[in-house]
Write a protein that binds this DNA or RNA. Structure first.
Length: 166
DNA sequence: GCCAACGTTGGC
DNA sequence: GCCAACGTTGGC
């Protein structure tokens, strides 16, 4: 199992929105490196740090889990969408997405400044200069440390607690 | 709103 | 296939 961090602008889609929806297709990624991670590397069950970007303060807000892989992003075929890609076809879709399901909202929101202050997170992709990948890998060690600092164990919740979320 | 860093596009 | 111009991301 691998770990990931995915960025979302909370005024567009927040951890509270995911908690409400239960699961969502991760539409709108138009960066090839991020797409390749979703298409080639992510597996059902991988866990995701849900990061709020372009907000004050930016930071990690909660946890999600990959619930489906290999989905064609529907927005690429929607001429009304900002994410419309006229060069993509349903037969050969260019933009592949995953679906994520809500796991948890962190008891303690960990801001970017908080993350930068943790020596144990040195080398994390998020903290590298100029890094702006919206879908990025996270090491198991970094993932566990962030969960711990956010007041949540890194262990998976029981089926019961996952099923109870709305 | 600024702007550094990075990614993409397209002329050649 | 180079690279200048342009567009985007996202922290500040």
């Amino acid at each position: 199992m691998q770990y990931w961090l995915m960025k979302s602008e909370p005024h567009v889609y927040s951890i509270a929105d995911l908690a409400r929806d239960g699961k969502t297709g991760w539409e709108g990624v138009r960066n090839y490196q991020a797409r390749n991670s979703m298409r080639d590397l992510m597996q059902v069950g991988d866990e995701v740090l849900f990061y709020h970007s372009s907000t004050e303060p930016p930071g990690v807000a909660g946890l999600a889990r990959i619930s489906q892989t290999g989905l064609a992003d529907p927005s690429q075929f929607d001429s009304q969408s900002d994410y419309y890609d006229p060069k993509s076809t349903p037969e050969n879709p260019r933009w592949i997405m995953v679906e994520i399901e809500y796991l948890d909202s962190f008891p303690t929101y960990l801001s970017l400044a908080d993350l930068k202050a943790l020596p144990g997170l040195a080398g994390m992709v998020l903290l590298q200069r100029g890094s702006r990948l919206s879908v990025q890998p996270v090491s198991a060690e970094h993932f566990a440390l962030i969960c711990k600092k956010a007041g949540r164990s890194a262990k998976k919740p029981s089926k019961k607690s996952a099923a109870r979320t709305k």
